[in-house]
Amino acid sequence: MQFCTAHFSAGLPTDDADGSKRREQAAKLQEIVHSYTRPGCRTVYGGDLNSVPPGSASTDVPEDVMTSAYAADEECDEGLSAARPRDRRWP
């Protein structure tokens, strides 16, 4: 298992209001992480990503910042509740 953490742009009007920088930051983070990922190794992302999971019940935006990470990796509690929307609740 490998762990990585990051702090993405805040999303304020003067700091990435449209989410484009956070999308770039997420892509770069995944590029770096996957360059170190060994076969069969699971990646755990953490930190302050200033975004919500794709498909979240939250009305916060943007929700597409980590879309490719969700496609490549798995949310920590998805195995227990795969049918439930990603709403940041514990199982």
Results as ranks from 00 to 15, higher is better:
72 A>W: 07
70 Y>M: 01
70 Y>A: 00
1 M>C: 09
4 C>P: 01
76 C>W: 08
72 A>D: 04
14 T>Y: 07
75 E>P: 03
43 T>N: 08
84 R>L: 05
64 D>H: 11
57 A>F: 07
44 V>W: 10
25 Q>M: 06
18 D>A: 09
23 R>N: 04
4 C>F: 05
2 Q>F: 12
13 P>D: 03
81 S>F: 04
11 G>S: 04
23 R>H: 09
17 A>R: 14
36 Y>W: 13
51 S>A: 11
46 G>C: 14
55 G>E: 10
28 K>Q: 12
61 V>P: 03
77 D>I: 00
29 L>K: 01
84 R>E: 07
6 A>D: 09
32 I>P: 02
3 F>N: 05
11 G>N: 08
77 D>N: 08
55 G>H: 01
42 R>W: 12
51 S>I: 03
63 E>M: 08
52 V>E: 03
42 R>L: 13
70 Y>V: 00
81 S>T: 10
15 D>V: 12
56 S>N: 02
9 S>V: 09
50 N>E: 08
5 T>R: 05
13 P>A: 07
32 I>F: 11
62 P>W: 00
10 A>C: 09
6 A>G: 03
72 A>K: 07
78 E>D: 11
69 A>K: 00
58 S>D: 15
28 K>E: 14
80 L>Y: 14
12 L>F: 10
56 S>Y: 11
64 D>P: 06
7 H>M: 06
17 A>D: 14
80 L>D: 15
59 T>E: 13
70 Y>T: 00
86 R>A: 03
85 P>R: 11
9 S>H: 11
74 E>T: 06
16 D>C: 12
30 Q>Y: 09
49 L>W: 02
28 K>H: 14
21 K>F: 12
1 M>H: 07
6 A>V: 09
53 P>R: 07
66 M>Q: 06
51 S>G: 14
50 N>M: 15
62 P>I: 00
91 P>H: 12
23 R>D: 03
79 G>P: 00
32 I>T: 15
68 S>N: 08
57 A>C: 09
26 A>K: 01
87 D>L: 00
53 P>Q: 13
68 S>K: 07
36 Y>L: 14
17 A>K: 13
83 A>M: 04
79 G>K: 13
35 S>H: 14
28 K>W: 13
83 A>Y: 07
21 K>T: 15
36 Y>M: 14
26 A>P: 00
55 G>Y: 07
83 A>N: 06
29 L>V: 01
64 D>S: 14
48 D>E: 02
10 A>L: 08
5 T>S: 14
33 V>W: 06
2 Q>H: 08
33 V>D: 04
79 G>S: 11
22 R>P: 03
80 L>M: 11
44 V>Q: 05
85 P>F: 00
46 G>W: 01
7 H>G: 04
13 P>W: 10
42 R>A: 15
18 D>P: 08
38 R>S: 14
90 W>F: 06
20 S>F: 11
60 D>I: 06
84 R>M: 06
40 G>F: 06
10 A>Y: 15
22 R>N: 02
6 A>T: 03
62 P>H: 00
30 Q>E: 13
80 L>I: 07
58 S>C: 11
70 Y>G: 01
88 R>L: 10
27 A>E: 05
49 L>D: 01
68 S>M: 10
13 P>G: 03
72 A>M: 03
6 A>H: 01
